[in-house]
Amino acid sequence: MSERATESVGQSTAEEQFFKDEHPANRPAETGDPMGMTAESAPGDPELMLTILVEEYASLGMNADEIMRIFDDPFYGATANLKRLLGEDRIRTRINEVVQNCGALRVSVRS
């Protein structure tokens, strides 16, 4: 193994260790940390949130593929987070279920 490759492996390990131990996403919460989460989790149902978001966009006239694209875009926080949490298959299945059951309203707008 070349010297450069060894350095690269070493760097990667140190980096991984840093993210494991020190990245804010992984560190345990500290009392008094102004950046720490202090809120309590509240009861919420991501499945219900998913269903309703899909119904909303179906009622705006989007079909299953168009709705799926909203979930694929990482810049749409609500839908991208749902996809990360529930997985692509679950999202696709639910979109199909909703569109098969409620349909997508076809709306024409002229201005």
């Binding site: 079909n63 299953a64 199909n96 569109v99 098969q100 409620c102 349909g103 997508a104 309203l105 076809r106 709306v107 024409s108 707008v109 002229r110 201005s111």
Partner: peptide, 15 residues
């Protein structure tokens, strides 16, 4: 009149 929106019909997808 500045806008006109028509609910045409719902389209359903086959399984």
């Amino acid at each position: 009149e500045v806008v006109r929106a028509t609910t045409e019909q719902p389209s359903f997808e086959r399984t």
